[in-house]
């Protein structure tokens, strides 16, 4: 049975996509069979153009045009990972993005069913870990992905105002959908005393990752866990992976 993890944040710019790419790469590098899907149809990340593209789009899964295994592409050879590393992109073309933004509730309900079916297909195909890189905030694309996931990792930057927003999302989305959730504090500064550990809900903080300028700069050109496993950021990602393994096994 595959473990499905949604990477979410209550606000954009928290480093969610970089985290998702590196976590998926970390799993693949230790021999796990991984599938990383960009399910942010409204603001596709194209995974920062770091990973090779497939023939079809994640949009095709939601439209019921193709099954998930026809959409994803195994990039393990290109990325040099031990385990299979499947990747699926959302279509970044503005026409596709505009089309998604005008979908009605009926379409979104069907999209949820199709995403549930895709999760089953991935499990049947022998994938160990499915990572869903969701959109930020609360809308259909992100909440559909959260509903499908077994675990939710909320990536957030520390700060008092953000703490309040995060509590809203935990209490109003994660908890009602009965999800196991964990927090990653990203881009932390040592002189900022406010943590985002979801005080009201007492959720586990898997890691606090310091703000590192080179991660922001290099993250656009390389997958750090693969190019420099000894980097402080990479070590954090591997630590998180080990914590997750303990939780999910």
């Amino acid at each position: 049975m595959a473990v499905t993890i949604a990477i979410h944040s209550y606000k954009g710019g928290s480093g969610k996509t970089s985290f998702a790419i590196n976590l998926a790469s970390a799993y693949a590098s230790v021999g796990k069979s991984v599938c990383l899907l960009d399910v942010d149809l409204k603001a596709p990340s194209s995974f920062n153009y770091l990973l090779p593209e497939g023939k079809h789009w994640v949009n095709d899964i939601f439209e019921g045009r193709y099954g998930v295994m026809d959409v994803v592409k195994d990039v393990s050879k290109e990325m040099g990972t031990k385990g299979a590393f499947y990747v699926g992109y959302s279509n970044p073309d503005i026409l596709a993005v505009r089309e998604v933004s005008s979908k009605d509730r009926k379409w979104q309900s069907k999209a949820l069913k199709l995403l549930m079916a895709a999760k089953k297909d991935l499990s049947n195909a022998g994938i160990d870990v499915v990572i869903l890189d969701t959109g930020a905030g609360v809308d259909f694309t992100s909440v559909n992905a959260i509903a499908v996931a077994d675990h939710v990792i909320s990536v957030g930057r520390p700060g008092a105002s953000r703490q309040r927003l995060m509590e809203q999302v935990i209490g109003g989305v994660y908890m009602p959908l009965d999800k196991d959730c964990y927090i990653i504090e990203n881009m932390c500064h040592s002189d900022n005393p406010t943590d985002i550990s979801g005080k009201k809900f007492d959720l586990p903080v898997l890691a606090s990752i310091s703000c590192m300028c080179d991660v922001a700069v290099r993250g656009d050109n390389e997958v750090l866990v693969l190019t420099e496993p000894g980097h402080m950021f990479s070590k954090k990602i591997y630590d998180i992976m080990e914590s997750l393994d303990k939780i999910t096994s």
Binding site: S109, F140, L177
Partner: peptide, 27 residues
């Protein structure tokens, strides 16, 4: 008599939401 999407799912009372979520998963 309307479609059940994920936002509507969130507004259901706990017991009905659990049932509906399980049904989404089972098909």
């Amino acid at each position: 008599l309307d479609v059940l999407d994920v936002m509507t799912l969130l507004t259901l009372p706990d017991h009905l939401r659990t049932t509906a979520t399980a049904l989404f998963e089972l098909g």
